[in-house]
Each structure stands twice: as C-alpha cells, then as structure tokens.
Amino acid sequence: MENQNNNQMKDNSSKQILLSVLGVAILVVAVVGVSFAAFTYTGEGTEENTISTGTLSMTYTETTNGISISNAQPTEDEAGKKLSSDNEKFDFTVSAEINGEAEIPYEIAAIKQVIPEPMVALQNKDVKLYLEKSEDGIDYTSAKEPTAFTPSGSTTEAGTPVGAMVLYKGTFQQSDEEYFRLRMWVDHEATLDPTNLQAFTVKVNVYGKAQAKAG
C-alpha cells in the first residue's frame, strides 16, 4: 500500500516536472517568439538608386543657297568635282547632341522634285551627284564619289523613303557636328535635247534613328 502511494507520488512529481519543463519551454519559446515578434529593425540606406533617361537631339542646317545652274552642259567628273561658284555647290551641316549611352545612325538623302512644265526632266542616269564631308567646314574630302541619281527601291531603316537616293550613311556616337557639300552636274555622256529646256531638281533631307550603344 505504501509503495503504491510512493509510486503514485513519484508519478505525480514526474508529471509536475514534465509540465514545468514544458511550461518553461513554452514560456521560453513564447518569450523568444515574442522577443522576435516585438524586435523590428529598419536599416535606412544612404545611397540613392536612380534611373533617368538621356537626352538626344539632332539638327540639319542649310548654310548656303541651293545649286542653281541654268546652262548645264555635259561635264566630266573631274571637272564637276571642282565646281566652285556659289551657285554650283550646296553646303549644309548635320549635328547631334547626345547625353547618355546612345548613338544615332543617320542618312543623308537626295529627294527628287517634280519638274514643272514646259521643262522636261533630265533622266536619272544623266545627272551626277557628288558629296563631300568635312570636320571643320574648311577641308573637304569625298564622302560619295560622283554617282548617277539612283533611287532607293524601299524605305531604309533610318527612314529614307522609296525613290530617294541615299548619299551618305553615318553614325553619331557622341555630340558632334559634321559639314557637307553637295555638287551636281550633267554627266559627260548625256545626250541633251537642244529643242527642250531640261532640268533636274533635288532637295536634301536627313534621317536619323537613335539606338542604345552596342556593348
């Protein structure tokens, strides 16, 4: 009988101890959990993380009057390249301002104009165009050798339309200004019709489309 009471007492003590341990454990967990739940942290950075766009602009400027030759005769290329009077050449500039990692591929194009009656249009093959380029507007070098007017069969990526002639392709990779000089003459092999007034007129356009710099 006494042993049973002793055993029962021992069981009760064990249970109490177990309960106590569990209670403490729970308490510890609860305290720890509450500690973490109650512990918040905010680390505020000082470095600014910013995204912003670059700026791009492009400008085409005609610096002289257009070519105006009223008594055009068949001309050898070497002579045509040296035409020097004010009315025999056309100067213009193309410039770009780039802030950011972008580049601007561009094209210079000759746009053929309709010839008013009673004049008759010269044939494309009978008209030569010659383009020079300069970094300073003083010393010019060939950008496109004398070439008969050759219309484009499709719109180019830069935007030169069908029927126009691409004279030059370039790319601005940074802010810059480039100078150009156009000359135009009747090809030396052209057979002119002396009984008709014949003419050929072009305007110059510039087309550019920016893209992110490669690499």
Partner: peptide, 12 residues
C-alpha cells in the same frame, strides 16, 4: 529625326 530640306538644287 527627319531634317527636311528647303533649298532647291537645280541644274537645267
């Protein structure tokens, strides 16, 4: 960008 020229360049 499209820069549209205004000057006529004419040979006749």
């Amino acid at each position: 960008y499209t820069g549209v020229g205004s000057a006529d360049n004419t040979i006749s």
